[in-house]
């Protein structure tokens, strides 16, 4: 009984950590130019696929991982520079369509390049499962959780202790004021997109040894990351992390105890529920509009 519960919990927080990273990416960009980036899911896919490709081409794993995080970050920068920036004054829907276009391009290119098959690579440190309270825990899950925790701490440090981080926060809060005090908001946008893409890619890199990856996994992962961001109240960093874990755990529990066929529907049922009863998300702030 307990072992089963633990098993669901373990798999929930593992996937949830990847959702949390994606949600952080969404939050970061939503804060800065107020865009919902639907290409976020594709960088998750990109992370896993690139590690697979580089390792297959003979590179050692650490180097493959570095490249698989750096390249999506560059993709993020290119997306901002070439697509978002020229259309910045456009309506929200227009920006959403641009990011959807970008996600189709990324997915299409990967499909042509690496095919439609599912891929994976070995876990970072063996695949001998640990036994805890009758449940099994893969060492890779510990990697996922550990690195996610590390990333969260690093982000917290970046945003609250460094000038660059504060500049990003200031820009998201009031771009014009930020510009007036001398912050290069152009640069801030680039960093936000790069960071957001890197976060997503890290999630993909970590998760792939457990879940496999293929050219089309991005959409669902991205959408669930978005759900996690909304659960966390869109715009709150801590909210995004807790939202990700919550979505992961609830999904795993519901899939285990209720119906695995409806596993993918659970985060979306959850989000409807939250929008109905907790309209600001669980951790969102209240805002008053001035007229």
């Amino acid at each position: 009984m307990l072992s089963q519960f633990l098993q669901f919990l373990f798999s929930g927080i593992t996937v949830g950590a990847a959702y949390a990273l994606a949600a952080l990416g969404f939050t970061l960009i939503y804060n800065a130019p107020n865009v919902i980036n639907f290409a976020q899911g594709e960088v998750i896919m990109l992370g896993g696929m690139l590690v697979f490709f580089f390792m297959q081409s003979g590179l050692p794993m650490p180097l493959a991982i570095v490249l698989a995080i750096a390249i999506p970050a560059l993709v993020g920068i290119a997306l901002e520079k070439l697509a978002i920036e020229p259309a910045r004054d456009a309506e929200v829907v227009t920006l959403i369509i641009i990011t959807i276009g970008a996600s189709l391009v990324i997915r299409g290119l990967i499909q042509i390049w690496l095919g439609k098959g599912a891929h994976s690579y070995p876990a970072f440190s063996g695949s001998e499962p640990l036994h805890i309270g009758g449940a099994t825990l893969l060492p890779q899950s510990l990697w996922v959780l550990g690195i996610t925790a590390l990333v969260v701490v690093a982000l917290w440090y970046f945003f609250s202790r460094t000038l660059a981080g504060k500049a990003i926060l200031a820009t998201s809060c009031n771009p014009l004021a930020a510009q007036l005090v001398g912050i290069d908001t152009q640069w801030v946008l680039l960093v936000s997109f790069a960071l957001s893409a890197a976060l997503g890619a890290i999630g993909g890199v970590l998760l792939t040894p457990i879940t496999l990856t293929s050219y089309d996994v991005g959409i669902m992962l991205g959408l669930k990351g978005f759900v996690a961001a909304v659960v966390g109240g869109l715009g709150s960093g801590l909210g995004a992390v807790l939202g990700g874990l919550l979505v992961g755990v609830i999904e795993a529990m519901a899939a285990g105890y209720i119906s695995s066929a409806y596993k993918d529907a659970i985060p979306f049922i959850l989000i409807l529920f939250i929008l109905f009863f907790m309209p600001r998300g669980i951790f969102g702030a209240k805002v008053t509009e001035r007229v």
């Binding site: 697509a83 259309a87 309506e91 276009g101 970008a102 996600s103």
Partner: peptide, 16 residues
């Protein structure tokens, strides 16, 4: 898929 996505982006950037 690639061409479809590229056309979408192109249209939205130049004719928002």
């Amino acid at each position: 898929t690639v061409v479809f996505g590229a056309i979408l982006m192109f249209c939205m950037i130049f004719m928002p």
